[in-house]
């Protein structure tokens, strides 16, 4: 009866089993629904409602509150430029304009090909490495306008299956908040936040 793939259903069951009340699983399941359809569709939200036993209106209430639940088609790569205080002081707006200019995609929109979406976001917790950019929520710190343009062109030409924070930091980043941080080998496979085991590839932490 479910509109979801067998694999997604197995994941949904597993996630629900972690909570004493199944309605608590609404948020991770919304990411499953996004991964299933590429973005959050009405059908996806209705499916989540069935799984967690609340009404679609209640599911949509959660989904529409958080900006990371995309209810419109999003490109394969979501480029998020931070324009909150620290990043703004260090040129965050310039970075955003550079990304918009190089990609031809105004913030809040997606290119015709469905490859790139550009958005400006509020603080992404990388003030120490400002200005910061995320691609599919994988972080790059210490970005310059030049590097931001390179990033856009790289995404367009290389079209990586998986984007990884360490790799992109190496190619397009500058000063990091914590350069002693544990290296993150997992990456994101789409424009939804990565959490185990969805949306991540590579080895698990500690392996």
């Amino acid at each position: 009866m479910s509109i979801w793939s067998e694999e997604t259903q197995v994941r949904a069951k597993e996630i629900i089993s972690r909570y004493p009340e199944k309605r608590s699983a609404v948020m991770p399941l919304l990411y499953l629904a996004m991964a299933e359809d590429g973005y959050l569709t009405d059908e996806g939200m209705e499916e989540v409602a069935l799984w967690v036993g609340i009404t679609p209106a209640q599911v949509r209430s959660v989904a529409s509150f958080y900006t990371m639940y995309k209810r419109e088609k999003t490109g394969r790569y979501l480029v998020s430029c931070c324009t909150s205080i620290s990043c703004m002081l260090l040129g965050g707006d310039d970075i955003l304009h550079a990304v918009e200019d190089e990609s031809g995609v105004p913030h809040g929109e997606t290119d015709d090909e469905g490859l790139l979406s550009v958005e400006h976001v509020e603080c992404i917790g990388a003030c120490g490495g400002a200005p910061a950019v995320q691609v599919n929520y994988e972080l790059i710190e210490g970005v310059t306008s030049e590097k931001a343009r390179d990033l856009v062109n790289w995404l367009r030409s290389a079209r990586p299956e998986v984007v990884n924070t360490d790799e992109m930091q190496e190619l397009f980043g500058g000063v990091r908040s914590f350069d002693w941080a544990v290296s993150e080998v997992d990456g994101a496979i789409g424009p939804y936040p990565a959490f185990q085991p969805l949306g991540t590839v590579g080895t698990e932490v500690g392996e």
Partner: peptide, 22 residues
Amino acid sequence: GDPLIEFQERGNVTEINTFPDL
């Protein structure tokens, strides 16, 4: 026991509404 209306959206655009077509 039939919560078919709920807050939708957020901040200055918060509204009460139903799910589309429900």
